[in-house]
Every structure is written in C-alpha cells, then in structure tokens.
C-alpha cells in the first residue's frame, strides 16, 4: 500500500467523520452572510453534536426495538458509504469494495431505517416526512442511476475509482455527454443533501419537513447520530461531485488540493442557491429531476453519435 493510498484512506475516515459537520455549518454561515446577517459560526454543528451527545434520549411511548436500532443503523450505513468514496481516485482496499450501486444501496438502507422508525412511533409528522422522503427518493434514485449510467459510458465501469480517474484532465470534457451528466448531477447533489429548493433543512414547521420529519421524536445521542449522518451525507455527495465531475489534473496532490478548494466552493454555491431559490412545491420536484434524467439520456444519444466538441 503506497503512501498515497494511506493518505486517501486518512482523508476518507478523518474527513468523513470529523470534517463532515463543517460542511452544513459552512453553508449556514455563508447563507447568513449572503442574507446580510452575521450568521452562525461554521463550528455550530460541532457544538450541537457535543450538546446532544451529553444528553439522555427519551423514547416515545410504545415503541419497539426498531425505533431504538434505527439511529445507529443510519449512522453505520452512512459510515460504510464514507469508505466507498474515492479520494483523488484512490481508496484503501476496504472489504466493502468500491461500487457505485453499493453506495446507492447503503443510502437506501439508511432511508428505510429512518422511515420505519417513524412508523414505530406512529406520529403524524414523522410519517408525513417519511412518506415524502421516500416518494422523492424514487425520482432521486432514478436520476442517480441515469447519471451513473451516463458516467460509465467511457470506461464501461461502475467502479467509483475507475469513474474518478476517467474524469481527469481535459479529455473528458471534449464530449458533450460529460457536460450534460455533470449538469444532471447537480440536481442529485441538491436532492441528496436535502437543500432548497427541494427540501428546507432549517424549517421549524413540522408540516413542511421532509428529511427532518422522521428525526422529530429523537433526542440526545440518537439525534446526534442522525445529525452527524446528515452532515456526512453532505460530505459524501459533495466529494462525489468533485471526484466525478470537477475539472482537475492527474497529479495526486493536485487532486487533493482541488478537493480542499472545491468543497468550500460547493458549499458556497449551495448557500447561494438556498438564498436565491424558494422551496418548490413538492409535487414539482419529480419534474425537475426528470429534466435531469432527460439530460442524461441526451448525453447518451450524443455519445453514440460519437459526439465531440
């Protein structure tokens, strides 16, 4: 195992576990600035996690083991997904492999666990969020697979390491398919991170919650695990966006540098979108995502006509 692989592994674990909460913190901070407020400190999520970890959770009446096991399972799924991520096209040989569809399935398992937990409490608000989350997940998964299929065209592989290496340098950008796929992936980023215009993570009104709804009953360490998982999802999706679609040179150190610069930039971009877009009607979301799917199919067609720019 070379030094670069070890370094990639360190970034995977340390970045995913420790730096992940910084991303939503940064978005909130930049958003505050954009709105003319001072905004919360970027370190605010860490303070919240520390506070939550020190508190004892309270169970709702009548819940079963399903409710109690859900938060660690959600966090474990997202934790496993962290290890699937390529860092500068490298990853240590974790026993998980590095397949894109495995990552999608771990997200699905996490979503399942949190939705089932809200059935266990049978609270109306949790179920409202869960039913919307799962309904939107249908379109998100469809779009994600369309993106992965289009991204797999040049290398004929769904291996994340291979996909990451395929986008290196200027050659990939010569094909219109790559542009269209990258554009479609931005929609995945917004949807999977639960940001406006698709979801509003800041809402305190139960009726408008999507991702936050199933978290409503949880407190203490359970909530800390779930909030960390939400932050780690930001990390995973944003790192994936850079690893697959950011223009970058082939050199390892330069690719890590692109990652270090790209993550705050993407957080800024998300904050900008959040400040300028209102949350859209939930029934409109699938149409927006279908547009992304259409872009991927268009990319597919251009690819098969040997499209070059």
């Amino acid at each position: 195992m070379s030094g670069q692989v070890v370094a990639a592994g360190v970034v995977q674990v340390v970045g995913g576990v420790l730096l992940a909460p910084l991303l939503p913190g940064l978005i909130q901070h930049i958003k505050g600035r954009l709105q003319g407020r001072r905004g919360p400190s970027p370190w605010q999520p860490y303070r919240e996690l520390r506070r939550l970890w020190s508190r004892s959770p309270v169970d709702p009446e009548g819940v079963t083991i399903v409710y109690r096991l859900a938060p660690p399972l959600v966090a474990a799924c997202v934790g496993g997904a962290l290890l699937l991520l390529p860092i500068a096209g490298l990853s240590p040989a974790w026993p998980l492999g590095h397949d894109a569809l495995v990552l999608v399935s771990l997200f699905a398992l996490a979503r399942f666990a949190s939705a089932v937990s809200s059935w266990d409490t049978s609270g109306g608000f949790g179920l409202m969020g869960a039913s919307r989350d799962l309904a939107l997940a249908v379109s998100v998964e469809g779009l994600l697979l369309a993106v992965l299929t289009a991204a797999a065209l040049p290398t004929r592989s769904t291996d994340l390491l291979v996909l990451s290496d395929a986008g290196v340098g200027a050659a990939a950008w010569a094909s219109p398919a790559h542009w269209l796929t990258a554009l479609a992936f931005t929609l995945v980023v917004v949807a999977e991170t639960g940001r406006q215009p698709i979801d509003n993570p800041d809402t305190h009104l139960e009726l408008t919650m999507i991702h936050e709804g199933p978290l409503l009953e949880y407190g203490g360490r359970d909530l800390a695990l779930l909030q960390w998982a939400a932050a780690a999802r930001h990390w995973i999706v944003l790192v994936l966006a850079i690893e697959l679609f950011a223009p970058r040179p082939a050199d390892f150190a330069a690719r890590v540098a692109v990652l270090a610069v790209g993550l705050p930039l993407l957080c800024g971009a998300l904050a900008l979108v959040e400040s300028w877009q209102a949350k859209m009607r939930i029934l409109r979301v699938p149409r927006l995502l279908a547009t992304g799917g259409g872009l991927c199919m268009l990319g597919l067609v251009t690819w098969f006509f040997g499209g070059r720019m």
């Binding site: 169970d59 660690p72 966090a75 495995v102 609270g123 695990l225």
Partner: peptide, 27 residues
C-alpha cells in the same frame, strides 16, 4: 459489507449506551 456496516453498527450501539429516561408521549 456486513462486516464493515455491522461492525460500525455494533460500535455505535455500544457507544450510545442504555436508556435512562422514562418514555414520553409522541409529539
């Protein structure tokens, strides 16, 4: 997959510890 995710799950379950507070009604 099972080893990694299951191992993480077990660790997190242990780290979370036991319940101390009494149950409360659903919101």
């Amino acid at each position: 997959m099972v080893i990694v995710v299951g191992g993480l799950f077990a660790v997190l379950l242990l780290a979370r510890g036991r319940r101390r507070a009494a149950a409360a009604p659903v919101w």
